[in-house]
Design a binder for these strands. Structure first.
Lengths: 109, 109
DNA sequence: TTAATTAATCGTAATATTGCAATTAAACGA
DNA sequence: TCGTTTAATTGCAATATTACGATTAATTAA
């Protein structure tokens, strides 16, 4: 079907999955790393930095924005992007909690 | 195209993306949480536990197995699954390193 | 106003993902 | 052996994702 049956899972499970999903493409990972590395807003040069067409980058930026991980502000003819630290932190905590699960004992395998 | 241009990204970026991708579906999140909760191998009852068809569960298990996050051992007519702790830990560290990026200063936004 | 620049959006093609019914394969018990 | 049980695989349909050319919208500079 191509459509996940979100209604049979918990809110938490759907949240974790959608957070992970937005990180599930190397272009978006690359964009995020670049924004962190620059440590400031990035106006324009994302298309040059990553080797994808302008329309494709714009689409990935839209997904990152819709998950709240980045924010963009219009600056003249260009748009400046940067990490949304509050939401990034929220995501980090949610995913870390999931990843930090541990088995106290591993009785069989 | 539907096909990610993996060749233009770094090995690390592709690794992070593929790890995140496998966590990007609530059914797989649910399976992993169940395996952690039970704290032991699970033989069979995954289909009852999660409300998806047997073929669908089997497919998700296959993806988790191919990423090395779980391992299954044949136990008579059924198959027992459990978390692969070494690989889980590896993934946790890789993703944590990515998520722990921080901005020392946020000069513009 | 007009041209130039930049990024979003639209439209489209190719591929991937999700889900399930049906079938197959493997192992056990009678 | 034969039926039963369990899970993998196959085949298919529906939807999602990725990518990009072309267009549009918005802003600036001349």
């Amino acid at each position: 079907m191509g459509l996940a049956k979100t209604e049979i899972f918990t809110e938490e499970q759907n949240t974790i999955a959608s957070m992970a999903k937005v990180l599930g493409h190397p272009a978006r990972v690359s964009i995020l790393e670049y924004l962190f590395k620059l440590n400031t807003c990035v106006c324009g040069d994302l298309v040059d930095e990553i080797g994808l067409a302008q329309a494709t980058i714009s689409q990935h930026l839209k997904e990152l924005k819709s998950m709240g991980l980045i924010k963009g502000s219009v600056e003249g003819t260009s748009v400046c992007y940067c990490i949304n630290l509050e939401n990034w932190s929220r995501m980090k905590n949610t995913l870390a909690e999931f990843l930090d699960q541990d088995l106290t004992s591993n009785t069989c395998c």
